[in-house]
Nucleic acid binder design. Structure first.
Lengths: 332, 332
DNA sequence: CTGTTAGCGCCTTCAT
DNA sequence: ATGAAGGCGCTAACAG
């Protein structure tokens, strides 16, 4: 169907140089006479040469692959991190290779192993929780490792994210400031989602600092979703504890809660204030924009990639706080 | 930090066989004595051997990579397709390598070129629109090619998706059935989104069959989003044409429209009926579930991968219709 | 059923 | 600034 794929030798021959020189031009490495460089580039163009990455990886024992391990794709947050990663990779020859763990550390370990088989330039994963074996593989690989989303822990190499405990605390402070004291909590199943748990703990801590405690809470057994949030708020209110505000584990849940209030004609925030976490677009498009905390997902992905590609692993771990900010909204 | 990564030779030596035999065991290829197989597996376990994919790819000029090219990650639809792809790949040694085009055919072409440099087992992309060069590369590569989302066209190898024209028609029929005759349209910028355009055309076609035409339309210049939908519906209604129903380019836009109605106290569907496309979770969690058409994104991804991995490219292209279904909802 | 022999296409090291 | 030689780890023939 198509002529033989041209190799570096073909390019070299056409340009009248050695394969080695052609390789140097392609990789932009070492010093090369301007004239030769041009001849090689011309040859590349006329032949339509594309380097064989497998050969390159084998010879250099390192590839232009960035291994990316995400806990989930159902939650819009991670595609947004992935967008950031893509943005950071734009214009570079690196390609992301993706795996999804479903919040399962065993799957993460397996993915790390398969990804390392490609000798990637870096591996990006989330959080600080890994199996011992996974941690050993990452440490021993010598490649750069990014642990995303969270910064409350000790990174293997670099961590990029925000303090979820602090974010939880900020939610509490905000509610207190606005005069709410009977605060309830609605969460999804966070047995495997440490960060939601951290926000919960921060929330409690923040309330405690003001001399309050959670008045009631309801935690579903499903993943976070609008539907789950709606159902869970209904359940929480059925507990018949007098509440003036509800903090949600995230925006998906909070939007669901808002829907419940709409359907049940509960006036927000007069009768009940709602607060989310993430700052998703959907929350800001509600008839009343959701009061929430903006996490910078895109920036997390982009920043991580940029740092990871900059240089080799340094002696001691590094933490990059991408922060968070309060979105005022109209639901508190 | 860690001992030399063990190679196939190490495994072979420990198992007392030749490297080739060890390779056969690893790849589960050719017939091997049960006893040898066990010995090799034992050696693999004790050494913690993981095959070097680059070497394998180079030697076999084909890799365990599936190139996946998506137009966008901002639209939840594509992460869901990706989820399907992952599901189809689960338990296989294949890994997806991802690229995002932002609906730019030039970027698609470039991505195809970089992905082919890895000699992937297959490439998955969307739609039938490609640059000539991109098409030639895909055809000439000889590898399997999946074109996803749409089936109204001629595939290079296989197409998996649904007829967006038919889906648009189904929207029209549904509205007509319910007695709506003054139908408006709200769309996002679909200069680069052929499928939204196809649904629009199908919608017009369906209305025409019943002797009607679009009463008014409003097309934004932004990508689809809840926010854009909200704004666009406001603009449409400001045109002051008497409407009894509005069809949206997709659910994101329709949810935004719903928000506008909530905020403006427009009763849905009494004063205005709303209809979306996609069947996203958020639409079904509204106080009134959105009337919409369910596209089977997950199935599209999963089916495509399964077919692509089954065998080599056959002589003539194949079309797989994953269909769509009406979600009744309460907004029509 | 298993072993032997050659590369795959590129990069690294060492010369020049 | 460029070239020559060797090998990365694996798999594809071919033998036997």
């Amino acid at each position: 169907m198509q002529a033989e794929t041209p190799t570096l030798d073909d390019v070299a021959r056409l340009a009248g140089v050695s394969a080695n020189t052609a390789s140097r031009v392609v990789r932009n490495k070492g010093s090369i006479a301007a004239a030769t460089r041009e001849r090689v580039h011309a040859a590349i163009d006329t032949l339509g040469y594309v380097p064989n990455r497998a050969a390159g990886s084998l010879a250099s024992s390192s590839s232009m692959i960035i291994g990316v391990i995400l806990p989930s794709l159902s939650n819009i947050v991670f595609p947004e991190v992935l967008r950031g990663i893509h943005a950071g990779l734009a214009g570079t020859p690196y390609q992301p290779m993706i795996g999804v763990t479903d919040y399962d550390l065993g799957k993460e370990q397996q993915l790390i192993s398969s990804l390392l088989a490609w000798q990637p330039a870096a591996i990006i994963t989330t959080g600080f929780d890994h199996t011992d074996s996974a941690r050993r593989m990452l440490e021993g690989s010598g490649i750069r490792v990014g642990e995303l989303m969270d910064i409350d822990g000790t990174p293997i190499d670099i961590a990029v994210g925000l303090s979820h405990r602090m974010a939880g605390k900020a939610m509490a402070r905000r509610l207190i400031e606005r005069g709410y004291t009977k605060v309830g909590y609605v969460g999804h199943d966070w047995t495997d989602d440490r960060r939601a748990n951290a926000r919960y703990l921060g929330l409690c801590e923040g309330l405690a600092e003001a001399g309050h405690t959670l008045a009631a809470e309801e935690r579903g057994h499903d993943a976070s979703s609008t539907r789950a949030g709606r159902a869970a708020l209904a359940k929480l209110l059925a507990q018949d504890v007098k509440l003036d505000a509800v903090a949600f584990s995230n925006d998906d849940m909070a939007v669901g809660g808002f829907m419940h209030c709409l359907a049940g004609e509960i006036s927000v925030p007069n009768e009940l204030a709602l607060m989310g976490f993430n700052g998703l677009e959907i929350g800001q498009s509600l008839p009343k924009p959701l009061s929430t905390i903006l996490s910078n997902r895109f920036a997390i992905g982009k920043t991580a990639v940029e740092l990871l590609l900059q240089a080799g692993r340094s002696s001691d771990p590094q933490i990059i706080d991408t922060g968070f900010s309060l979105l005022d909204g109209a639901t508190t």
